[in-house]
Design a protein around this nucleic acid. Structure first.
Lengths: 184, 184
DNA sequence: GTCTATACGCTGATAGAC
DNA sequence: GTCTATCAGCGTATAGAC
């Protein structure tokens, strides 16, 4: 994406998001971001302070999830799995992958944690009844992330070649068990 | 761990494993490994070819897991969760974290995939009956990794402060559902 | 063969001139 | 605001001393 007529700050943001999500944190260089945005590498740092700060400011905490989480709880398990499998790689998977690939950095790990909590655990915990609602919501998030991990990041061939409906049923019902469990 | 009397090649291996597992791939420098092993940085490359090759040769595909997987299938769900929670940070979690932190590298991602399959999916698929045994085993692995991820890597406070027995019961039973499901 | 010294081309980041 | 010059540190390669 050579020279656009966006103001440089926005051009940098735009290029950074795309590259971070596509190539991961370590494989994305400040110079590559600058080239994609059509500006000087020094400008990138001048505007955002550091590569890490740029990452934190541009890579979003997936915004489409809440809609799925707002659906009926009875069918949420399978719906979450469907959402992961049908992602066009960008909405969840790319962002998640980018964050994981940068997870040696404490601040980015902290962001991962906060984003998981704000976008997933918080809203979900309010909607499920029973015992330990927050814990159960967090475990659902863990299981959800496990699937993203296996399907998009590791790209396991067993999963990629499997019938999607089977995955939805099996893994979805497993998640559903956490959602439904009355507790100890 | 300053100068030991190990042959340098072993000293490098030893230092590399420790640093990779403790700090992740990106945060571990070849020079730091050399310093810990008490030798010259160039020696590290001379002996192992590259940082990535050193990583692949030293960081093990967790070896203790198979014992857990060999236990009775009826209680495997909770047993796997217990195994994750009681890990002293090194056996599973550190290795897994190190691999994830290096997952921008295709070869290391491939290793993650292979290791998951050899140590987990293969042995498990042979032990569970029903439909789609390999797929179900892979989904159990995904769910297992999700917990490692949330508990050890993200170190989510909701999980860390929760009652371990509650986690074992809830998440364990959810895994167990995958193990038991007769399939469609 | 085993190791050291040195250097190359990259990275993220800074200082200061336009 | 933007670019030029430059920094120290990175992974890596090679030449040559033991």
């Amino acid at each position: 994406m050579p020279p656009t007529n966006l103001p440089p700050r926005d051009a940098i943001r735009c290029a950074a998001t795309e590259l971070f999500v596509r190539d991961g944190y370590g494989a994305t260089t400040v110079r590559a971001i600058a080239a994609a945005a059509g500006c000087d590498p020094a400008l990138v740092i001048r505007h955002f302070g550091s590569k890490e700060a740029l990452f934190l400011e541009t890579v979003p905490a997936s915004a489409e999830l809440p809609r799925v989480l707002a659906g009926p709880v009875e069918s949420l398990g399978r719906e979450l799995v469907r959402y992961v499998l049908e992602a066009t790689e960008s909405p969840v998977a790319g962002v998640y992958r980018a964050m994981l690939s940068a997870s040696d950095r404490p601040e980015i790990r902290e962001r991962l944690r906060a984003s998981m909590h704000d976008v997933f655990v918080g809203p979900l915990a309010d909607r499920i009844g029973g015992a330990h609602p927050e814990l159960r919501a967090r475990l659902v998030a863990a299981q959800f992330a496990g699937l993203i991990n296996a399907y998009w990041l590791v790209a396991d061939p067993v999963l990629r070649s499997a019938d999607r409906r089977a995955i939805v049923e099996l893994y979805g019902d497993s998640i559903q068990r956490l959602l439904d469990s009355a507790g100890s």
